[in-house]
């Protein structure tokens, strides 16, 4: 059990994050959630539940809670977000089905942008350290989170991974989520955007089949476009479906293998990184004045 935030993560393993806590562990960011939340109070009207009262037992009472089930995750996500902001970091949550080419896209990106940005990666998978090892082969720092039976990363795991990883200020932080187009949609990690990666070897109707994820994403990357000549994948239809679910979504077509279209992705990253830098600088100026 973590003495600082009280966590017991079950099957989750974070590389380099000892969870026996024989040593006092230091949280890089505030994890003592002193969040305001609605307090329950007793009402005697409009209840969904009726209190029962049996003799000899302390009387049952109804507590109106009205608390969001994700409120704990959202509080950790808010902490992560403010940490990223303070440190001028651009954090992106990469989501997709298994096999969309996320890790290939990521390793190519890391290689191509190595000279330009400080970068760090949090890798989420149910099992194995294989992806983190692929990332580290590019020379970029990575930490692997194994979720065990869990199907998504949550903001609390990411907070601990950031603590272990200690990315440099102003860096790009890529969080590669567990391959799954359903569950990660609900869990905010504190990222600037979700980036959903769809490969043309999948169906063009995936945006309609998994609307929550495509609705939550700021960018869709259509990957493996070099394979289009061999497939019956209707790119226009896929884009129309994505825009139906999310009219504001940005869309890029790339092949992480041949490099086609990757410059547009890098420009998207540069612009976003730049805007975060200007915001951070403005904040600093305001504080200094």
């Amino acid at each position: 059990m973590c003495t600082t935030c009280g966590c017991a993560e079950g099957d989750t393993q974070i590389e380099g994050h000892a969870h026996d806590h024989s040593l006092e562990h230091h949280h890089a960011h505030s994890h003592n959630h002193d969040h305001s939340h609605e307090h329950s109070h007793n009402h005697d009207h409009g209840h969904a539940l009726m209190a029962t009262h049996a003799a000899g037992i302390s009387p049952a009472r109804i507590l109106r809670i009205e608390q969001d089930i994700l409120s704990k995750n959202n509080a950790y996500a808010a902490d992560n977000k403010s940490y990223f902001k303070q440190h001028g970091m651009l954090a992106l949550n990469l989501v997709s089905s298994p096999g969309s080419g996320k890790t290939t896209l990521l390793t190519r990106t890391l290689d191509d942008l190595k000279a330009e940005f400080s970068q760090a990666v949090i890798e989420g998978d149910q099992q194995t350290l294989l992806d983190a090892e692929r990332i580290r082969a590019t020379g970029v720092n990575a930490v692997q989170i194994n979720t065990g039976k869990g199907c998504h990363l949550d903001a609390h795991m990411v907070g601990h991974a950031v603590e272990t990883l200690k990315p440099e200020d102003n860096s790009l932080l890529f969080i590669e989520n567990v391959g799954n187009l359903v569950c990660p949609a609900s869990f905010d990690l504190g990222e600037a955007h979700k980036v959903v990666i769809l490969s043309v070897t999948e169906g063009e109707d995936k945006p309609l089949k998994y609307p929550d994820m495509f609705n939550a994403a700021g960018l869709m990357i259509l990957n493996k476009t070099d394979l289009l000549p061999y497939l019956q994948f209707d790119v226009d239809q896929c884009i129309a479906y994505a825009q139906r679910v999310n009219p504001g979504i940005a869309i890029l077509q790339v092949s992480a293998t041949t490099g086609e279209g990757m410059q547009a992705w890098y420009n998207w990253l540069r612009e976003l990184h730049q805007s975060i830098q200007s915001n951070t600088q403005n904040q600093t100026t305001i504080t200094n004045n």
């Binding site: 539940l49 302390s58 009472r61 809670i65 089930i69 994700l70």
Partner: peptide, 9 residues
């Protein structure tokens, strides 16, 4: 996705 009420004792 909310906890609405609890009946407790």
């Amino acid at each position: 996705m909310r906890i609405k009420e609890l009946e407790v004792q």
